[in-house]
Design a binder for these strands. Structure first.
Lengths: 303, 303
DNA sequence: TAAAAATACTCCATAGGTATTTTAT
DNA sequence: ATAAAATACCTATGGAGTATTTTTA
């Protein structure tokens, strides 16, 4: 069976007349007859009844015609959608993100994709940094949103966000009236610190900040998620160190203050396979660049 | 574009290796390369990226592959469904019926089609007798369920049901205690008679019965539907002449009695285009024959 | 350099053409 | 008698083969 047969069946069904159909197809009537017969032999069913002076379609012919029409119209569209896909206008993009990006990056990105590339499907994966890196390399992920770490040289990255790490304190904490807080202000409070396996970069920076300040926290408590740390802070159970963008989460019972001893910077980056020519990936990176490119050129640092 | 191209794309996408794919397809590697290139030229998109040592599929190739797979599997199934359709196992049958058949015939027929030919779709048309006959002849209807009338000789028929025409009386009518009723019993009651245009055969038989009895009804009222006639009878507004099968409609307030002066017979028939070889029509007629064939051979009368 | 795809060419299978026969009204 | 499809036979396009070159890791 070849597409020619389908085209011929459709033409014959439309005219119910072999000669007329053959003219429309720009072939001779005998050629058309031969091809239809060939198809009937292959399908095992008489598609047209020519026993009378006029041609009529059989039941089997009718159902075959339906699929033939469907197939032909699918293939007609296929070229243009394939070209669209090649432009990155259509397709499915798999984006991974770390939990800290769920507030600061993901909603805005999804919104932009929706408006700029309405035909593109997004598959979101909330995965830790290490998982993202291995899945990017295996090809199971297209773009990762993560924090800068020593990268495999098979990956490229783009800085999206550079934010301050600030202290989250209970509203009625004594240090709340100060503009900036120092280590002594929280010496005796419980430090709510996100789990190292789930937030490796954040964890490392928090520890690093204390080490750099020459102090170490008296009491710490490992927490599974940043939201929990802030919720517990609101409940006056302790304090936390969080990226600035987290202040959107619970403004009521929690206040946010910078550390006066110098504010650590916390970076969020996009990652992708080095040299990827995938047009859809390039389009999404272009969107990220649009959103996060800053005039001071700080946020635009592509390796 | 030909189906060959689709098969080749699928094979290459499966192995991501031209030589291996060519072996699976039983063609040489150069032939495969040429055909893929040809398709890429036609579609206007590079489907596979062969710039590296290994082959990978492009975004455009991915979406083309999806339709290619879909098309091929549709066509694989198409032959067997076409053969099924040719056996009358699949397809759509258009059945017309007169209102009087809606209780006596249609429900049972639909049930049998559902169990014996589960893949067949039924399109039901509630059409008067004359419409059925013209639509059968134009090919817009497959089978009609109607009442015997002088038929066009382009149609064939099969007797399905031969029932008595009986009187529907209000429960408390004086004649209700009698086993059979005569004309005098209803002389002064209002005869509820279905409209001639909608129920031509029934109308004619009712009038004919009175004429044969040498009487004519004093008061008559044209009614749009049989159900209305019976409902009005229940409300003591008059009486009606109905096919026996109508007694299933309102048993509570209405009683049914034969006419003692001889009971007219009312026939329901199936109609179809003479000599139709359509396998689905034959299957449905076979089902009707199963249901309505009677041992006394009265109901089995095919012209 | 080796493994893979692309190119060059040759060949033949088959789609399609022309002439004619068969079939149904 | 005639209009339509089927059959017979021939032609030539193009798909596929073999031999070879190009490319990339």
């Amino acid at each position: 069976m070849e597409l020619r047969h389908l085209r011929y069946v459709v033409a014959v069904a439309e005219s119910l007349n072999f000669r007329e159909a053959s003219r429309k197809l720009h072939v001779s009537q005998p050629s058309l007859s031969v091809q239809i017969k060939q198809l009937e032999d292959e399908v095992g069913v008489r598609l047209f009844d020519r026993s009378k002076r006029h041609v009529e379609i059989t039941r089997g012919g009718e159902v075959f015609l339906t699929t033939a029409r469907e197939v032909l119209s699918m293939l007609e569209r296929s070229s243009s959608t394939a070209r669209q896909a090649q432009q990155g206008e259509v397709g499915t993009i798999r984006i991974g993100f770390v939990p800290t990006a769920s507030v600061a990056i993901v909603p805005r990105l999804l919104e932009e994709i929706k408006t700029q590339l309405p035909l593109v499907e997004v598959e979101l994966k909330e995965w830790p940094e290490a998982t993202q890196i291995s899945e990017l390399q295996s090809g199971a992920l297209d773009i990762g949103i993560s924090h800068r770490e020593k990268l495999s040289d098979r990956l490229e990255s783009m800085l999206l966000l550079r934010e301050r790490l600030i202290l989250a304190l209970p509203k009625h904490h004594q240090a709340a009236r100060k503009k900036a807080v120092n280590f002594d202000d929280v010496r005796d409070d419980l430090l709510l610190i996100p789990r190292k396996d789930l937030y490796p970069t954040l964890h490392k920076m928090i520890i690093g900040t204390f080490v750099a300040g020459g102090v170490r926290p008296n009491r710490t408590q490992a927490i599974e998620h940043l939201q929990t740390a802030i919720a517990l802070t609101a409940a006056n159970a302790g304090f936390a160190f969080v990226p600035e963008s987290a202040d959107k989460l619970w403004p009521q019972e929690v206040i946010f203050r910078p550390l006066d001893a110098g504010v650590p910077r916390f970076e969020t980056v996009a990652l992708w396979l080095r040299g990827s020519a995938d047009p859809l990936i390039r389009r999404i990176l272009e969107i990220l660049r649009q959103i996060y490119a800053k005039p001071d050129s700080l946020a635009r640092r592509e390796s």
